[in-house]
Design a protein around this nucleic acid. Structure first.
Lengths: 151, 151
DNA sequence: ACTCCTAAAGAGTTTTTTATCCAGTTTACG
DNA sequence: CGTAAACTGGATAAAAAACTCTTTAGGAGT
């Protein structure tokens, strides 16, 4: 039902970065605090997103992480294909390696329409959309109550 | 997108047992071979299903595992609540502990309808239904090609 | 040039999940 | 009875996922 913790952290962090003024690098430390997530682990995840061209990183003073130019339009699906692996959309609910119309598990027929809904949902949502939603103040990215959020 | 391997094995095994003549205990070894799954590990999973009243087990010669009386109607949801834990249906896609209408993650509104579809799918499918589907010969429970299935 | 602040990189640790092993108990059957 | 076949339960091991630590390197300000 859920994603790996790595994917959750990646998505949360990307949305958070997308809510920040573009061009101003965001510190790993600040993201970790804001999401109450282990900083060293998050750093690894962000590095990986850099390698794959979603983020830019800057070292030294005034350093940090920024969404790369144009990457506000990145969809959740694009992110999850990186963090969950390229077979993310191919998974069979029973774990079969091969589960197509030809060689189907007994759940296949019922599962496919639901899976399509999930995929289109993930493909429709961009970081920009989600960041805007968060900026309305109606939604949260972490379990921290709003009153305890770092300034 | 997927279930734990433990859940996958549990569901596969239960469906397989449901395809076998009721009252005749099925050997753990046979199930493991049929699904090409580690036998010792599967045994633990089956024991757990016994503890929770879905299966009956019999020791000694002519021993094995049977669906408990009336348990052909067991739904996938009932099984997954055991194998994935009682919070299985409560999970937030971003991993928030609290993600309700009041305290929602930015995906919440779009995710809920999909989640409902998943839940009703899992709640509608019984072991009996799935076993019947398998018995038609159109579906498979493991990656083994039909030609290699143990007799 | 020097120093401080940052990410990068790699190795190492801990925890969870998955898988194995073995000695013990139960049962059927000869 | 005795033996082989089957589950049981506890301990253990291996693999994967989550997380940490330490060192290195690069950029900004003085």
């Amino acid at each position: 039902m859920v994603l790996s913790r790595t994917s959750q952290y990646a998505v949360q962090a990307l949305i958070y970065i997308a809510t920040q003024p573009p061009g101003e690098p965001v510190l790993n430390r600040d993201i970790a605090e804001r999401l109450s997530v282990p900083a060293a682990y998050l750093a690894k995840i962000l590095q990986n997103l850099c390698k794959h061209g979603i983020l830019d990183s800057f070292r030294g003073r005034l350093g940090g992480f920024c969404l790369r130019e144009g990457m506000h339009k990145t969809t959740l699906m694009q992110v999850l294909l990186l963090t969950e692996g390229p077979d993310f959309t191919k998974s069979c609910i029973l774990g079969l390696k091969e589960c197509s119309d030809a060689t189907a598990c007994p759940l296949h027929a019922k599962w496919i329409p639901v899976k399509k809904k999930i995929i289109s949902l993930l493909t429709d949502m961009s970081l920009e959309d989600l960041a805007k939603a968060v900026l309305t103040g109606k939604y949260r990215l972490s379990d921290l109550p709003v009153s305890l959020l770092p300034a």
